[in-house]
């Protein structure tokens, strides 16, 4: 299912961009990767999209319309209450900076990877704009209870 889910992603033009520099302070990237605030509505679309965000392969969340969700990673409910936008940004960009053993893929790193398929070489999983959209959306998930 994971394989089928990502089949169309190679053609996604937004993944072509290079990784821009960013500054980590403590356990966060306080500044937006693009210098602008993301769009929470677009962010929700990325999170639930199995070809783009891939989030629900491993995470569950307050998405009653999504039947097939993952249990390998924390539920996304209440994410915005637990973490600041800067903390969320670093955890998406490269969670291995906080826990080298994490299963969370580095969404905005192209270095230090092994045997990357040709279609994805040199490309981050999400663009800076997409990550800002996801951060903006996750920050709205402040309710820890079921949807």
């Amino acid at each position: 299912m994971l394989a089928a889910a990502i089949a169309s992603f190679a053609d996604d033009a937004t993944s072509q961009e290079q990784v821009r520099p960013y500054t980590v302070i403590g356990d966060a990237i306080p500044e937006s990767l693009t210098g602008a605030k993301g769009d929470a509505e677009r962010g929700r679309g990325i999170v639930v999209n199995r070809q783009v965000g891939l989030c629900l392969l491993c995470h569950s969340g307050p998405f009653p319309e999504e039947k097939f969700q993952g249990t390998l990673a924390p539920d996304l409910k209440g994410t915005g209450a637990r973490w600041s936008e800067g903390q969320l940004r670093l955890r998406i960009v490269d969670a291995s900076r906080l826990n080298p053993n994490t299963i969370m893929p580095p969404y905005y790193r192209t270095e230090g990877l092994t045997r990357v398929a040709p279609a994805y070489q040199g490309k981050p999983v999400l663009s800076a704009e997409q990550i800002e959209d996801v951060v903006a959306y996750l920050a709205t998930l402040r309710d820890e209870r079921a949807p």
Partner: peptide, 20 residues
């Protein structure tokens, strides 16, 4: 791979969990 996963992370460490 781009997702930086090993076989063991799913099949040793997280078997029984749900992927999608």
């Amino acid at each position: 791979g781009q997702l930086n996963l090993s076989c063991a992370q799913c099949h040793d460490d997280n078997w029984g969990q749900k992927l999608a």
